[in-house]
Nucleic acid binder design. Structure first.
Lengths: 229, 229
DNA sequence: CGGGACTTTGAAACCCTTCAATGCCAGTGG
DNA sequence: CCACTGGCATTGAAGGGTTTCAAAGTCCCG
């Protein structure tokens, strides 16, 4: 793994980022180790002990579990400024891999970051906030996966991905993941993912420009699952 | 709502509860408001602003979302000592109802509990730990819901429910929820839940004593989804 | 230009939802 | 005490959706 210590960007500023959070992130810079990863490289493993917390600086990651039967379940999609590595037990429950070549990650030794949180309430608040964000994301994903029809799941996922896009002004975005990733994220087969996307395109709720460039045409329809006639 | 200020139990001691966590919970007692709820009463609403954090003292709760089309998605099951009400936005993303008559909840004004966390690192650590636990639960549930076959989902859920049971020595437990709740928790229909339970009983992986008393007979089999022949 | 990974499409078997009806149980009022 | 009621649970049958297996099409990169 390619390791470097360098100036850290605190990430693209979004509406949810308060100045206090920016300051807290900067306070973490002194203990951060920045690493860079290629696609499908494992950043932290299911079996490793949770000695570190991490933050995505650029690129994207998939958090996943491999079941005993070999099936992969993607549990979270990690985008810039998301934290991961939070664990309550002795072992990580999940592995994390880079999805995109050149993904950069800030890595914080757990002992040190917790010590920092103990003395700096702003840091503690920021970490809480990031944990709450993760809770919100996972809850939303549970609702998405809870839809009964595959087309609805895919439609709802596309809307969520649009919402997580940096540029809020357009209805276009680039899928950060493959059809296989989407399948393992939604608990359906790749073929069904492909067919659902084709259907959504056919009825005009989305438009494609290449396999990964998506335009959301009828967001309301996708949210309500109206493609189910 | 029936409100009272009284002595608070810090909950049944489990292996995961360190003394430091106990102390932190006791530090919260001074700002807690204890309330008692009947079945299906709404403890906090999807539309309310998140002014409070909550902890289950006894009984159980369902955290859920109602979609525009009326479908209910249960997102988390709240058991004694679980926190909820953590939110990163302006509104709660979910509602919470009591599942069981006489469920008691400790309610902490958010401003005051955050102030306490700012000055008392043990409290901050405990809250972080509780948030991480929630993340772990939600991730596990995503894996459960991600199974492709309904029997596997139900089987995996039953194992998770067994694991959350207070008494670790037996393979028996009482379902805290109805078949309808299970259906909305797994994203499948009630009828399929019922048929899956019947199937699991038939092949001898579980045993029932009344509709809600379950015995896990073949836990390994349920975890691996081996009931899928 | 070719290889390899990813995506799409087709067809059959299987699983799940839906609609309908029955069974079960506890609480209520006569 | 018992019939009755309402909510929950189970079972059946039909239709539709998804998985699986198979094969072709597409794209990117060396």
């Amino acid at each position: 793994m390619h390791t470097q210590n360098s100036q850290i960007q605190t990430g693209a500023r979004t509406s949810s980022e308060l100045p206090a959070e920016q300051n807290a992130l900067e306070a973490l810079n002194s203990i951060a180790i920045v690493t860079k990863w290629k696609r499908d490289q494992e950043i932290c493993g299911q079996e490793s002990s949770p000695d570190h917390w991490y933050r995505v600086l650029s690129g994207a990651g998939r958090k996943f579990v491999i079941r005993a039967n070999g099936q992969r379940h993607i549990v979270d999609l990690l985008m810039p400024n998301d934290f991961f590595g939070f664990a309550s037990g002795e072992r990580h429950a999940c592995s994390v891999q880079a999805i995109i070549d050149g993904t950069t990650i800030a890595c914080y030794p757990r002992k040190r970051i917790e010590a920092l949180a103990d003395t700096n309430p702003a840091v503690a608040r920021m970490i809480r906030g990031k944990a709450f964000e993760a809770i919100g994301r996972l809850q939303q994903q549970l609702v998405v996966v809870g839809h009964t029809k595959a087309v609805d799941k895919v439609g709802a996922l596309l809307v969520k991905l649009l919402e997580r896009q940096a540029d809020k002004r357009t209805d276009d975005f680039t899928l950060p993941m493959s059809r296989y990733d989407i399948a393992d994220y939604l608990g359906i087969s790749v073929e069904t993912v492909s067919r659902s996307i084709t259907d959504l395109k056919q009825v005009g709720m989305i438009a494609l420009r290449g396999t990964r460039k998506v335009r959301i045409v009828d967001r309301m329809g996708l949210e309500d699952g109206e493609q189910t006639s």
